[in-house]
Design a protein around this nucleic acid. Structure first.
Lengths: 102, 102
DNA sequence: TTCATTGTTCGATTGTTGTCGAACAATGAA
DNA sequence: TTCATTGTTCGACAACAATCGAACAATGAA
């Protein structure tokens, strides 16, 4: 598989993060990673096409919200808590707390 | 002038708020309202066309981020702090603090 | 009334985004 | 090797979003 690009901590941009999390599916992905820990891509949304989900994971990764790593045939996803907290203190927590409302 | 629709507190949606604030111009508008208080539309961005700015204010208003009221020929804008704080505690503060980084 | 100021609305354009299915790639098991 | 599993990439499409200029509306001042 190809290299997975991740922005450095300093390169994470606020508008990009907000945009990444402004989609309900992506918000849901982040919320699940928050409460259930690292998960492979396949364990999420059932209704959307695989290619659609792949797209959403990519948006989250390029925005710096998640890190992805390949393990076997799976692709595990992790929230970049520390990086986001360092760059935008309190932001991720506030969004995830707000996302619980749904 | 026409009625200005504002969503009720309960109708404010997280994805919509995040989307509204994911645009640099709109983020800037919110940040200025935060530190400089209520302001008419005309006191913001200089480079963008009036119609463009009008569009951005409308997006913020329909998302529940700002309230607008007409006064004479001006249209004053206010951050809906209390409503946002009640609905999504800590969210607006975290975003505005993060926006200072720019 | 006439005019300047301040915004809004409209239509057009350009670009971005979300979605899908089909084809492809990589891994690991039979 | 063959096959199933898991994702990615590609091309297409429709929907949405950002931008602009021109025309319009409302207010208040001259």
């Amino acid at each position: 598989m190809r290299e997975l690009h991740h922005p450095t901590r300093d390169a994470i941009s606020l508008p990009q993060v907000l945009h990444a999390l402004s989609d309900p599916i992506r918000l849901c992905i982040a919320a699940q990673l928050d409460c259930r820990g690292d998960l492979p891509c396949g364990t999420f949304c059932e209704t959307a096409a695989k290619s659609t989900m792949s797209h959403h994971f990519k948006v989250l990764r390029l925005a710096g919200v998640i890190a992805q790593r390949n393990e076997g045939t799976s692709c595990f996803n992790t929230l970049r808590r520390d990086d986001l907290e360092a760059r935008f203190p309190g932001l991720l927590d506030a969004i995830l707390r707000a996302a619980d409302e749904f």
